[in-house]
């Protein structure tokens, strides 16, 4: 049986982080560090970079806790988005160092496949995304993990913007069902 944190649990945690209690840091790290690290690892495909991202994410969360508005959403959603954005920044920075040109979507797909085959098997969320039909999984992965916009993906696949949005949203809807199982 899952131990679902209620809103009041999260409120207590946030209050303790604001009070800079060491216990809050222990709780924050033990509860979320693995998930955030794996999220980053599935994007950056490099343990050192993923560790850097985790550190930056945790420090940002700790120092920026006053910017989190609980009424407007989930605490984990907020942390996950910080982690995801930092991860995307890392890989984009890494690729920009290699080439002055913007890396094409095709290059990302190749890199992603190579990364998965060489070092890291699909884990956690990524393994669930892989269970989706390709026409949903690929744009979903490119959008969520590599930060490509709907417009960029519509242009790449040569389909209308609405089609890409539908594929991604349908993929997310299926993903929700897979998460429940």
């Amino acid at each position: 049986m899952k131990s679902n944190p209620t809103y009041s649990d999260i409120s207590q945690l946030i209050a303790k982080i604001k009070a800079e209690e060491h216990e809050a840091f222990e709780h924050l790290y033990s509860k979320y560090s693995n998930a955030l690290y794996n999220m980053s690892l599935s994007i950056v495909k490099d343990e050192g970079l993923a560790a850097d991202v985790l550190q930056e994410t945790m420090v940002k969360v700790w120092k920026g806790i006053d910017r989190f508005e609980q009424s407007k959403g989930g605490f984990f959603t907020w942390m996950l988005n910080i982690c995801r954005n930092l991860s995307i920044d890392k890989i984009r920075g890494k690729h920009e160092k290699r080439s002055k040109k913007n890396t094409s979507i095709e290059d990302w797909i190749k890199t992603e496949k190579q990364g998965s085959q060489l070092s890291f098997d699909a884990i956690g969320l990524e393994s669930l995304i892989n269970q989706l039909p390709k026409e949903q999984s690929e744009p979903l992965r490119l959008n969520y993990m590599y930060g490509y916009t709907h417009a960029e993906l519509a242009s790449y696949y040569g389909v209308p913007l609405g089609t890409i949005k539908t594929r991604i949203r349908t993929g997310m809807s299926h993903l929700r069902k897979l998460l429940k199982t």
Binding site: K2, N4, P5, T6, Y7, Y32, S33, N34, A35, L36, Y37, N38, M39, L41, S42, E47, A50, A51, L54, G73, G74, F75, F76, T77, L80, F120, I123, G124, L125, S127, L128, R176, L179, K180
Partner: peptide, 19 residues
């Protein structure tokens, strides 16, 4: 939302990697 977050957290924790 809390349930969805928890499900996602669990999915991400299923990874074999620890920092």
């Amino acid at each position: 939302l809390t349930l969805a977050e928890e499900d996602l957290l669990n999915a991400l924790n299923k990874g074999a990697h620890s920092p």
